[in-house]
Amino acid sequence: MTTVTIQAGQTHGARGAVADTGGGSRTSASARTSIVALSDVEKVYRTDRIETVALSQISLDVQAGEFVSVMGPSGCGKSTLLNIVGLLDTPSRGRVTINGTPVTDASDRVLARLRNREVGFVFQTFHLVPDLRVIDNVEIPLLYRSMPGSDRRQAARDALERVGLAARMHHFPSQLSGGQQQRVAIARAIVGRPSLLLADEPTGNLDSQMGDEIMGILLDLQQREGTTIVMVTHDQRQADRTERIIRLFDGRLVQ
């Protein structure tokens, strides 16, 4: 494990360090391509009286196949950063590129397509649709692709098998434990084989044993399938298992 912290405004600082890290079947740095590129990103929330700077001068690259942790105290902008990378939020300034596609001024349709094809999200609170069975929840990303229903069903089954929950596919989320719900959320995130998996405190609502299970699944995805993962976490133990740690403080990348 290597901890790399990028100074605000600094770009590409971590690339070399990543190549030096250990970790099974990771791709070499020279062969990797940039999945996420943020350049001078700033996020400011404005109300009538108050202006809050959530992110300032953030520039970073995440390479294909990397597993990156984002750490920092509460309110430092970790989730905001993840939301911008995941195209759920837009920066006030700066440029964002996902897998080579600039998204700063992209239309709703283009953003929707990129979210669908390139990004998979795992949320701290799972965000499963309570009225849908597990398999239907997992199918959600594929609903927005043109594909036969039988293929969609099969892909959802495969994803559930991947996280060890195929036996529960006809349950409703409320019938599952927290760890199982998070595994469903991971299945939903990977079912469309996105190039980038974003996880916002995926173990935050789980006990340490379940947290380890979830972390194991994420590491397995990265190591065996080369999935690029960016994970926000408060848990140093889990962050230490990733290739690179990015630290944020008051909206800035810090040492």
Binding site: L88, D108, A112, R113, N116, V119, Y144, G192
Partner: peptide, 12 residues
């Protein structure tokens, strides 16, 4: 939010 996060456009 979930549907948008996973690729639903506004029109969808």
């Amino acid at each position: 939010g979930v549907r948008k996060a996973f690729g639903a456009s506004s029109i969808t």
